[in-house]
Design a protein around this nucleic acid. Structure first.
Length: 219
DNA sequence: ATCCCGAGGG
DNA sequence: CCCTCTGGAT
């Protein structure tokens, strides 16, 4: 059994999957609403364990009252908590938004840093959030965004053996050309929401079924 | 491994 | 009731 040949097979499968996903979701983009990189960062922090649709219900009022990093940094914590409450984890999220914006003002001149290493210093920001901000805010592909959908679908498709999001990301970075890293994530998220849902994957209507280990095992 | 946490679906 | 939603810190 040749390991290299197996890996190469995965690489080809990943590319074919992406071709189909691009055909299926040609206009897939980030579904968070924001005007600036700071607002994208805040919206992405809020999106943890929460639908984008719900995030988009609280951010208009949040950004109307506190439109930039400076205002968010000075906002009363209780106000922020009340505004983001319905997204869940609201104490953590409010504290992290305020803390991240304080650091942006004090250490980065009021602008969201464009380097992975610096983004990871912000409270409440790890690789998933940093990848989203870099890709959609600045057009920089430093990694593959691995959220709950990307992790679940990559696992079901048989493209990673790992559960740790960092290792899943490393596997995907090896399987895909860098310019497609965010194309992969955004379309797996669409497909995860529409077809390959956590509790009821609709394999009968899935355009990827013939390329999917999960479906093959089911049949 | 565990905790944080609300809202919606089944 | 249980599970899930573009996770991160302890």
């Amino acid at each position: 059994m040749n390991i290299t040949r197996q890996w190469s097979g995965k690489q080809q499968r990943a590319r074919e999957i992406l071709i189909r996903l691009k055909r299926l979701y040609p206009d897939a983009t980030c579904t968070l609403t924001y005007e600036t990189p700071v607002q994208l960062l805040v919206a992405t922090i809020l999106s943890a364990q929460c639908t984008d649709e719900r995030v988009n219900k609280v951010t208009p009022e949040l950004f109307r009252r506190y439109p930039d990093a400076s205002r968010l940094a000075d906002a009363p914590l209780e106000e922020l908590e009340a505004l983001v409450r319905s997204t869940g984890f609201y104490r953590h999220k409010a504290k992290n938004i305020k803390g991240a914006c304080q650091m942006i003002v004090q250490d980065f001149g009021g602008n969201v840093p464009q380097r992975m290493e610096e983004l990871l210093k912000l409270p409440g920001v790890a690789r998933k959030t940093a990848n989203v901000v870099l890709a959609h805010g600045f057009g920089i592909n430093m990694g593959v965004t691995v959220d709950t959908h990307v992790k679940r679908l990559s696992d079901r498709l048989g493209l990673t053996e790992h559960q740790d999001p960092i290792r899943v990301e490393r596997d995907l970075m090896r399987l895909l050309p860098q310019p497609d890293w965010e194309n992969w994530s955004i379309r797996l998220i669409y497909h995860g929401r529409a077809v390959c849902q956590a509790k009821k994957p609709d394999c009968g209507n899935c355009q990827l079924a013939d390329l999917c280990e999960f479906n093959q095992a089911r049949v």
